[in-house]
Nucleic acid binder design. Structure first.
Lengths: 241, 241
DNA sequence: GGATGTGAAGTAGTTCACAGCC
DNA sequence: GGCTGTGAACTACTTCACATCC
């Protein structure tokens, strides 16, 4: 739905593929930075932790972009992955809550990349409001909200729902929620949850059970971080608590 | 391999199931905290963003723990999930790098739960070493390293490999790497990667393409955050760059 | 009656194996 | 020769549908 890209909308990509593309992109950029010009599926696979076949299947979904016998040209690869992920499109991000986590995100050279542009920062702590972080002056959350596409929620769980409500009312279309709290949003708004403790628990499960990577296998599961929820009939409640 | 739990080692759980159990656990705890005593698969499913059938399949993997016609008893559920995830076992966690991210993690009431115990904090910044954070005095990373099971890497990418090497040498068995950097570890060491920008990119893909949650569906994919790598023959290089 | 637990069916994703092209 | 791209086989996961038991 909504505006479609200029030409050739690729066959829709599978969820696992989508979650791997950013990883491939990072590998490709690393090689470009080191002055390389080509890469093959086996090399990408080793670095990404998946099989060469999986890499080729994923990339085939973006169109025909490799050369038989010679692998992929890094420049082409980078451009097509960027196109598929919508990296050419710029979009605004607002961050609500500038405690340690919010600061870590906006100061990270890694978080706001690939089209993401910081639109504004919000907090309700008078000690924080007015201070400058990452080149933006923190504004009070009860004031006007800047237009943006994505909102990042870095507030305590108890405040997450109220923050989400305000952001949605302000026209936000996607939320990245770092609070371990279910939030309800109207139909059409996407919510992704990120929960560090779940990562730690999964890691511990594997350590306790000797499953997963341990057996000496090279390749492993690789999934999306957090759940992806949105809306039920009236109010979305799909997510965890 | 390694020590096996006391009795009844459940049939090994699937990767998707493992990633959902912590979410169920959080829901269960929330209901217990609100004084409830029972829950059924449909209720869990709505909150977790999965179908009731999926919930029942996942829980069936932990043994027979529900009551036909009456759902699950919250206390039993909590205990069995905890057992499956190894929450009864205490394990030490060291955090290296106490910039904003490291501080956010150790100060979060959400991160170090369920058996995880903070063993020590390390940094190499003289301004940070010696300060007290979350009840621990930050120690210099070039000094002795405490015994622990899991190491959390919150340092810049360029330092990640060196940190991993030291931690592995100190006997760490699992690493949670927040740096967007491939790290090599010896066979038998588990590495999980967490990358916020990938989350943001996946969210944007769905917003751009109208896929995922938007169509009005209630339930959606729900995966593991980050990749799970470890070791190849000589040195592990499975991961991204 | 009502919700679990589970064979059976269906769907999605991965891996194999190789034809095709450079 | 080497590596891509892909039908075919396989494996994993989910969903259906219902027998089972409280």
């Amino acid at each position: 739905m909504g505006a479609v890209t200029t030409r050739l909308r690729a066959r829709k990509l599978s969820e696992p593929t989508i979650s791997r593309l950013p990883i491939y992109q990072r590998i490709v950029e690393g090689w470009i930075a080191r002055g390389q010009t080509r890469i093959d599926s086996r090399q990408i696979g080793e670095l990404a932790g998946v099989t060469a076949t999986t890499v080729r299947r994923d990339l085939a979904g973006l169109g025909t972009l490799g050369t038989r016998g010679a692998g992929y040209e890094l420049g082409v690869l980078s451009a097509r992955i960027a196109e598929a992920l919508g990296h050419d499109r710029h979009y605004g991000v607002v961050v609500v809550g500038l405690g340690n986590l919010g600061r870590a995100l906006v100061n990270s050279s890694n978080f706001l990349i690939r089209g993401a542009q910081l639109s504004a920062l919000y907090d309700n702590d008078p000690h924080v409001v007015g201070s400058e972080i990452a080149g933006h002056v923190v504004e009070p959350f009860d004031g006007p909200i800047a237009a943006a596409t994505v909102g990042v929620i870095c507030v305590p769980s108890a405040a997450a729902q109220a923050v989400a409500d305000r952001l949605v009312a302000a026209g936000i279309r996607g939320l990245l929620n770092f609070a371990p709290q279910v939030i309800s949003v109207p139909l059409g708004t996407a919510v992704h949850y990120v929960d560090f403790s779940i990562e730690l628990q999964i890691l511990m499960y594997h350590l306790n059970n000797g499953t997963g990577p341990l057996g000496g296998g090279v390749l492993h599961s690789l999934g999306i971080a957090a759940s992806n929820a949105s809306s039920m009939s009236k109010n979305a409640e799909a997510s965890w608590h």
